[in-house]
């Protein structure tokens, strides 16, 4: 009899616990997210520009081409934009004369980059005939600092796209070439300009 009473009490205890809430069941879905930094610089216009000096005024005053290049920027990180000559001197393809020097320096190139927001460091501030000469192969900052350096006073471009922020992510480039009248040998020359979009470090 005593044994049965014990069993009955035990079974009541078990039944009480059995009526408690069922445990929940969980399942996990594991999500991985890889955000790769993307920097995309697009040259919209013709990459080949020809400057033909055939008159004395052109040699004296230089030749200006406005809006000759249009650049579009898309970036997921803060960015700097610079321009530099690939070589310190123009490459001489053909010489028309033996007079003068064929070592034409890259610094005869003046550039001006304009964005609608006025953030460009070389937009000339709206002052006429204000161009910024290239020096050797040095990078000339358009936005931010020189690539690869950390500058507390830097004002890099914000992440974004020209599609949504055309005022700050789209640039028009003006060029002026001023070789001078009597320094260089007549001939055919070429040089590459490099526009670099880099993450602001």
């Amino acid at each position: 009899m005593r044994m049965l009473v014990v069993v009955a009490i035990a079974s009541f205890t078990f039944s009480t616990s059995a009526f408690a809430q069922l445990p929940t069941d969980n399942e996990n879905v594991y999500i991985s997210l890889e955000l790769q930094g993307v920097l995309d610089l697009t040259l919209v216009t013709n990459p080949n520009l020809d400057f033909v000096f055939s008159t004395i005024p052109q040699y004296q005053n230089g030749i200006t081409k406005t809006n000759a290049t249009e650049l579009r920027v898309e970036a997921t990180v803060a960015w700097d934009l610079t321009v530099n000559a690939e070589t310190a001197n123009w490459e001489n393809f053909e010489t028309y004369s033996s007079a003068g020097s064929t070592a034409v320096l890259s610094d005869i190139i003046g550039v001006r980059a304009i964005d609608a927001a006025g953030n460009s460091l070389i937009d000339g501030g709206g002052v006429a005939n204000t161009y910024f000469s290239l020096t050797g192969t040095d990078q000339l900052p358009i936005i931010g600092d020189i690539t690869g350096t950390v500058d507390a006073g830097d004002a890099p471009g914000a992440p974004g796209s020209y599609l949504t922020s055309p005022d700050t992510h789209q640039f028009r480039i003006d060029y002026r070439l001023s070789p001078g009248l009597d320094t260089y040998t007549a001939g055919y020359y070429g040089i590459n300009l490099v526009y670099t979009l880099a993450e602001d470090l």
């Binding site: 009541f12 078990f14 039944s15 069941d25 879905v29 594991y30 890889e34």
Partner: peptide, 30 residues
Amino acid sequence: QFVIIFWCSSQTLDLTITKGSDLVFTFNSI
């Protein structure tokens, strides 16, 4: 009570992911 216990212990709550438990998102273009 043993019968009730047996009946109760046979209750189930089961959740199963039958597909796609490990997903990867890669963002590499604007």
